[in-house]
Design a protein around this nucleic acid. Sequence first.
DNA 1: GCCAACGTTGGC
DNA 2: GCCAACGTTGGC
Length: 139
Amino acid sequence: MRYWLFKSEPSAWSWDQMKAAGGNPTEWTGVRNYLARNNMRAMRLGDLGFFYHSNEGLAVVGIVEVAALAHADSTADNPTWECVDIRAVAAMPTPVALSAIKANPKLAAMALVANSRLSVQPVTQAEWAEVCAMGGYAS
DNA sequence: GCCAACGTTGGC
DNA sequence: GCCAACGTTGGC
Protein backbone atom coordinates (compact mmCIF):
# COMPACT_ATOMS: atom_id res chain seq x y z
CA MET A 1 0.00 0.00 0.00
CA ARG A 2 1.34 3.33 -1.02
CA TYR A 3 0.13 6.83 -0.35
CA TRP A 4 -0.26 9.85 -2.62
CA LEU A 5 -1.46 13.41 -2.75
CA PHE A 6 -3.71 14.81 -5.49
CA LYS A 7 -3.77 18.55 -5.95
CA SER A 8 -6.65 20.40 -7.51
CA GLU A 9 -7.83 23.96 -7.77
CA PRO A 10 -11.38 24.03 -6.39
CA SER A 11 -12.45 26.18 -9.34
CA ALA A 12 -11.44 23.35 -11.67
CA TRP A 13 -12.45 20.29 -9.64
CA SER A 14 -13.36 20.55 -5.97
CA TRP A 15 -13.76 18.12 -3.10
CA ASP A 16 -17.48 18.91 -3.16
CA GLN A 17 -17.63 17.63 -6.74
CA MET A 18 -15.57 14.62 -5.76
CA LYS A 19 -17.99 13.83 -2.91
CA ALA A 20 -20.98 14.41 -5.18
CA ALA A 21 -19.79 11.47 -7.25
CA GLY A 22 -20.91 9.41 -4.26
CA GLY A 23 -17.93 7.09 -4.15
CA ASN A 24 -18.10 6.39 -7.87
CA PRO A 25 -14.74 6.58 -9.63
CA THR A 26 -13.87 9.68 -11.61
CA GLU A 27 -10.95 10.18 -13.97
CA TRP A 28 -8.11 12.34 -12.71
CA THR A 29 -7.58 14.01 -16.07
CA GLY A 30 -5.49 16.96 -17.11
CA VAL A 31 -2.04 16.02 -15.80
CA ARG A 32 0.57 17.18 -18.33
CA ASN A 33 3.71 16.67 -16.31
CA TYR A 34 5.96 13.63 -16.62
CA LEU A 35 6.78 13.27 -12.94
CA ALA A 36 3.11 13.45 -12.02
CA ARG A 37 2.25 10.96 -14.74
CA ASN A 38 4.93 8.56 -13.58
CA ASN A 39 3.55 8.77 -10.06
CA MET A 40 0.13 7.78 -11.41
CA ARG A 41 1.67 4.87 -13.32
CA ALA A 42 3.13 3.61 -10.04
CA MET A 43 -0.27 3.57 -8.32
CA ARG A 44 -1.99 0.30 -7.48
CA LEU A 45 -5.64 -0.43 -6.82
CA GLY A 46 -6.55 0.45 -3.26
CA ASP A 47 -3.71 2.93 -2.75
CA LEU A 48 -4.94 5.91 -0.74
CA GLY A 49 -4.39 9.59 -1.38
CA PHE A 50 -4.98 12.99 0.12
CA PHE A 51 -7.18 15.40 -1.81
CA TYR A 52 -5.61 18.87 -1.57
CA HIS A 53 -7.12 22.20 -2.55
CA SER A 54 -4.57 24.54 -4.12
CA ASN A 55 -4.89 28.28 -4.74
CA GLU A 56 -8.05 28.54 -2.67
CA GLY A 57 -8.45 26.56 0.51
CA LEU A 58 -4.82 25.49 0.77
CA ALA A 59 -5.65 22.41 2.79
CA VAL A 60 -5.93 18.64 2.70
CA VAL A 61 -9.69 18.21 2.68
CA GLY A 62 -10.35 14.56 1.93
CA ILE A 63 -9.21 10.99 1.42
CA VAL A 64 -9.47 9.24 -1.94
CA GLU A 65 -8.72 5.73 -3.18
CA VAL A 66 -7.23 4.59 -6.48
CA ALA A 67 -10.04 2.79 -8.34
CA ALA A 68 -8.42 2.20 -11.74
CA LEU A 69 -4.83 1.89 -12.88
CA ALA A 70 -3.28 4.46 -15.20
CA HIS A 71 -4.89 4.55 -18.63
CA ALA A 72 -5.01 6.97 -21.54
CA ASP A 73 -6.26 10.43 -20.58
CA SER A 74 -9.30 11.00 -22.79
CA THR A 75 -8.80 14.77 -22.57
CA ALA A 76 -5.30 14.55 -24.06
CA ASP A 77 -4.52 14.63 -27.78
CA ASN A 78 -1.35 12.69 -27.12
CA PRO A 79 -1.16 9.09 -25.78
CA THR A 80 1.80 10.15 -23.64
CA TRP A 81 -0.62 11.42 -21.04
CA GLU A 82 -2.39 9.04 -18.72
CA CYS A 83 -4.65 9.24 -15.71
CA VAL A 84 -5.97 7.03 -12.94
CA ASP A 85 -9.50 6.88 -11.60
CA ILE A 86 -10.09 7.79 -7.97
CA ARG A 87 -13.08 7.71 -5.66
CA ALA A 88 -13.90 9.69 -2.54
CA VAL A 89 -13.43 7.69 0.66
CA ALA A 90 -13.99 10.21 3.46
CA ALA A 91 -13.78 13.88 4.24
CA MET A 92 -10.93 14.96 6.51
CA PRO A 93 -12.76 15.64 9.80
CA THR A 94 -10.65 18.77 10.29
CA PRO A 95 -9.01 20.02 7.06
CA VAL A 96 -5.24 20.17 7.46
CA ALA A 97 -4.01 23.55 6.25
CA LEU A 98 -0.79 24.03 4.32
CA SER A 99 0.31 26.47 7.02
CA ALA A 100 -0.07 23.73 9.65
CA ILE A 101 1.86 21.27 7.48
CA LYS A 102 4.66 23.81 7.01
CA ALA A 103 4.71 24.46 10.76
CA ASN A 104 5.19 20.75 11.55
CA PRO A 105 8.90 19.82 11.54
CA LYS A 106 8.00 16.16 10.90
CA LEU A 107 6.55 17.19 7.55
CA ALA A 108 9.41 19.38 6.34
CA ALA A 109 10.36 16.85 3.65
CA MET A 110 6.84 16.47 2.27
CA ALA A 111 6.68 17.09 -1.46
CA LEU A 112 3.89 19.55 -0.82
CA VAL A 113 6.42 21.73 1.00
CA ALA A 114 9.61 20.82 -0.86
CA ASN A 115 8.23 20.67 -4.41
CA SER A 116 5.03 22.64 -4.29
CA ARG A 117 4.42 22.65 -8.04
CA LEU A 118 4.09 18.90 -8.47
CA SER A 119 0.39 18.08 -8.89
CA VAL A 120 0.50 14.35 -8.08
CA GLN A 121 2.92 13.52 -5.30
CA PRO A 122 4.04 10.52 -3.28
CA VAL A 123 3.43 10.62 0.48
CA THR A 124 5.40 8.45 2.90
CA GLN A 125 3.65 6.27 5.43
CA ALA A 126 4.97 8.44 8.26
CA GLU A 127 3.70 11.59 6.55
CA TRP A 128 0.35 9.93 5.91
CA ALA A 129 -0.03 8.98 9.57
CA GLU A 130 1.01 12.43 10.76
CA VAL A 131 -1.40 14.35 8.51
CA CYS A 132 -4.24 11.96 9.37
CA ALA A 133 -3.56 12.53 13.06
CA MET A 134 -3.59 16.30 12.55
CA GLY A 135 -6.92 16.07 10.76
CA GLY A 136 -8.55 13.70 13.23
CA TYR A 137 -8.86 10.91 10.67
CA ALA A 138 -8.38 7.40 12.00
CA SER A 139 -6.14 5.87 9.35
C1' DG B 1 -2.18 40.74 -8.76
C1' DC B 2 2.61 39.74 -8.04
C1' DC B 3 6.43 37.00 -8.49
C1' DA B 4 9.52 32.93 -7.47
C1' DA B 5 10.18 28.34 -8.84
C1' DC B 6 10.02 25.16 -12.10
C1' DG B 7 9.16 22.67 -16.60
C1' DT B 8 9.24 22.96 -21.52
C1' DT B 9 10.54 24.69 -25.94
C1' DG B 10 13.46 25.72 -29.56
C1' DG B 11 17.60 27.96 -31.63
C1' DC B 12 22.25 27.18 -32.02
C1' DG C 1 23.20 18.72 -25.79
C1' DC C 2 23.26 23.30 -23.89
C1' DC C 3 20.85 27.10 -22.29
C1' DA C 4 17.99 31.33 -22.81
C1' DA C 5 13.36 32.50 -23.30
C1' DC C 6 8.98 31.64 -22.25
C1' DG C 7 4.71 29.80 -20.04
C1' DT C 8 2.50 27.92 -15.99
C1' DT C 9 1.77 26.93 -11.24
C1' DG C 10 0.62 28.23 -6.86
C1' DG C 11 1.66 30.63 -2.43
C1' DC C 12 1.42 35.04 -0.61
